[in-house]
């Protein structure tokens, strides 16, 4: 069993099988599985740094302002299609033909869990 540091994946470039860059790792999605927290999905997009901030509308507004927003470039890669044994060099495990199937269509972002409601 190997252990890896997930934080090293943040912002890493991911290349397709043919060597073309498809984007950077923006987010790692995990879900509760019984007692365990398991990684289910990796989000790969073009604006890694921006993604961490994009809960704010202003982020996307700015992107729009500079005409940088092309949200079509977001891929949701299932956990078993990305080899993260070496977090500094993540490798895609699917062929180029499969890739469009993982593309995120529309704006179906995971809705954020509000933190601020905890205070009362």
């Amino acid at each position: 069993m190997t252990n890896v540091n997930l934080e090293h994946l943040a912002g890493r470039r991911v290349c397709s099988e043919s060597g073309k860059s498809i984007g950077y790792i923006e987010e790692i999605i995990a879900e509760q599985d019984g007692d365990d927290l398991v990684v289910t999905e990796f989000h790969i997009g073009i604006f890694a740094a921006f993604e961490r901030l994009s809960a704010s509308t202003i982020g996307t507004a700015l992107l729009d302002f500079f005409r940088l927003r092309r949200r079509s470039g977001l891929y949701r890669i299932p956990w078993d299609k990305l080899d993260i044994t070496d977090p500094a060099h993540p490798r895609l495990l699917c062929s180029d033909d499969e890739l469009p199937g993982f593309e995120d269509i529309g704006n179906s972002r995971i809705s954020p869990a509000p933190l601020h409601q905890r205070d009362s």
């Binding site: 901030l53 809960a55 704010s56 509308t57 202003i58 982020g59 954020p112 869990a113 509000p114 933190l115 601020h116 409601q117």
Partner: peptide
Amino acid sequence: FLFLLNDDRYVG
């Protein structure tokens, strides 16, 4: 500030 003060997870 631009991001923190527009993030509803922090400031609702």
